[in-house]
Amino acid sequence: MKLHVNGKPYEHTAGRTIGTLLPEIGAFPDKVAVLLNDNVVKRAEWQNKELKDGDRIEILMLAAGG
């Protein structure tokens, strides 16, 4: 499945949900938040949130800032 992850093309092979995408790219699920096509997807919905070709996913984490 062809996705756009953090602005770059990405081929997701391990499954078809946000829950399968995060470990495949090495993100720690307890330390990230996810935007799917500009909408926030809550952690509780990740396992069942089906992805489709062309989806844009932003994966964010905490950073230093004032």
Binding site: I25, L60, A63
Partner: peptide
């Protein structure tokens, strides 16, 4: 705190 994109190089 702020937010930034997850990056495998800076995990």
């Amino acid at each position: 705190v702020a937010l930034r994109r997850f990056n495998t190089e800076y995990a």
